Computed example of a mutant assay.
Amino acid sequence: MGATRQRQFIRFLQEDLALSPDSIAIALRQRDTDVGPLPMILWKYGFVTLDELSQIYDWLEAV
């Protein structure tokens, strides 16, 4: 994911899904140790629900 797209994605997470910057930061740090895409890490750690995970993938597909 390019830098611009990642900024848009982070903005989506904060504004549309109301994730806190701290939750996002934790998931980003975990991405370095947990192999997998960021949306799955957010779900794995309980930061998003299955419905929100679906919204994330819909957003990623549309962008």
Rank of each mutant, 00 (worst) to 15 (best):
1 M>L: 06
1 M>H: 11
1 M>A: 10
1 M>Q: 07
2 G>H: 03
2 G>Y: 02
2 G>L: 05
2 G>E: 06
2 G>N: 14
4 T>N: 03
4 T>R: 08
4 T>P: 00
4 T>Y: 04
4 T>G: 03
4 T>C: 00
4 T>A: 02
4 T>I: 12
5 R>P: 01
5 R>V: 11
5 R>G: 07
5 R>M: 12
5 R>W: 08
6 Q>I: 07
6 Q>A: 08
6 Q>H: 08
6 Q>S: 12
6 Q>L: 14
7 R>E: 14
7 R>A: 15
7 R>Q: 15
7 R>S: 13
8 Q>S: 11
8 Q>L: 13
8 Q>P: 01
9 F>R: 08
9 F>N: 04
10 I>N: 03
10 I>Y: 05
10 I>V: 15
11 R>A: 12
11 R>I: 07
11 R>Q: 11
12 F>G: 04
12 F>R: 05
12 F>M: 13
12 F>T: 05
12 F>K: 06
12 F>S: 10
12 F>V: 09
13 L>G: 05
13 L>M: 12
14 Q>S: 13
14 Q>D: 07
14 Q>G: 04
14 Q>H: 12
15 E>K: 13
15 E>C: 03
16 D>F: 07
16 D>H: 12
17 L>W: 15
17 L>Y: 11
17 L>F: 14
18 A>C: 10
18 A>N: 12
18 A>E: 15
19 L>M: 12
19 L>Q: 13
19 L>Y: 12
20 S>I: 06
20 S>D: 14
20 S>E: 13
20 S>G: 14
21 P>H: 12
21 P>C: 04
21 P>W: 02
21 P>V: 07
22 D>Q: 14
22 D>F: 12
22 D>G: 09
23 S>G: 14
23 S>I: 00
23 S>N: 15
23 S>E: 13
23 S>T: 07
23 S>A: 15
23 S>C: 14
24 I>W: 09
24 I>N: 08
24 I>D: 09
24 I>C: 08
24 I>S: 09
25 A>C: 03
25 A>Q: 14
25 A>F: 09
25 A>K: 15
26 I>L: 08
26 I>T: 13
27 A>S: 12
27 A>H: 03
28 L>K: 12
28 L>I: 15
28 L>A: 03
29 R>C: 00
29 R>F: 03
29 R>W: 00
29 R>D: 11
29 R>T: 07
29 R>H: 06
30 Q>V: 05
31 R>I: 02
31 R>T: 01
32 D>M: 02
32 D>Y: 02
32 D>H: 04
33 T>Y: 12
33 T>N: 01
34 D>Q: 05
34 D>T: 02
34 D>L: 12
34 D>W: 01
34 D>I: 09
35 V>G: 01
35 V>W: 00
35 V>A: 13
35 V>T: 07
35 V>I: 03
36 G>Q: 09
36 G>D: 06
36 G>K: 06
37 P>W: 00
37 P>E: 08
37 P>A: 09
37 P>M: 08
37 P>Q: 10
37 P>I: 00
38 L>W: 01
38 L>Y: 01
38 L>C: 02
39 P>S: 09
39 P>C: 10
39 P>H: 10
39 P>N: 09
39 P>V: 00
40 M>S: 02
40 M>E: 07
40 M>T: 00
